[in-house]
Amino acid sequence: MNTYDAFTPFGWPIVIYLTLAGLACGATFCAVFFLHSKERACEGQSYAIVKTSLYIAIMAIMLGVLLLVFDLKSSDRFYLNFLEFNPASAIAWGTRIITLFVMLCVFSLILLGTVDDNDKSNPIGPILTAFLILFALAIGIYPAQVLGQATIARPLWEPFLLMPLFLLLGLHSGFALVQLLTSNKWTDKSLEQIRKLDLGAIGVQVVLFTLLVIATTFSSTGKDQLFFGEFALWFWIGVVFIGWALPFIASSTASRSNNAIILTQLCFIFGAFSLRTVIVFSGQGAQAFIGT
């Protein structure tokens, strides 16, 4: 029995799930990006990237759900999430969103399977694309609302700041993973565009996280937990050094070797994971109302 359940009910499986949900969101956006921007990748290879992106999205979210199921204290009763529906609960909505999202991705892959990689026609119409974007957005945002429903008890989990931050982390890490797995198929022009976007994404991450800290951790305990607590190393090394500083230095260099690109993308993914780790665990460590 875990004696500390009431204090850290959300553990590593939840952190990994949040990261995987973000990856699924980002990979789907990457698929849509290349679906409608063939010139941004090597001629004739964009569908390969689209397919890889959708496979990543499906596998990431399914693995995440599997983790969630095993994390349940009564895993055999997981089906209750489909039988019961609480419209006020973000998790209840998330269950339905994930189900439809996976179905959409699988359907898109089936449609893509009907055309050749070099085919110029786009088998995925604008309506399906719009739904893919909508559900990918929902997958990226809803985990923040899951944490946000506990904001009375855990003030660091402010949903209105977590939502854009989680979405950005997901988009960034999702693109990074796709790039990591398909780097040989990207044109120099695409890589250059992504490099500039990387720099912007790091900047926005820093701004959003700073706002989150300013808005929610006025209490000394909150700050202690975040910057000097049990998970401070994750913040200073995982987030600040590996997630922000290293990729910033690497992305600031105009010409990068393939190894530098791979290292940068790995840093982004690990940085996103570290930031979610810090938010989940420090959020639970900082008790509500201390200092009020």
């Binding site: 009910p9 349940l72 009564s74 209750l80 998790i91 009375i152 008890a153």
Partner: peptide
Amino acid sequence: DKCCGMKACISACPYGAIYIDAKSGRA
């Protein structure tokens, strides 16, 4: 009968009033 041990209620409670029963695996 409706609990599957999701722990969302535990996380949301500002009073730390809810626990998971180790035997039943439910809140």
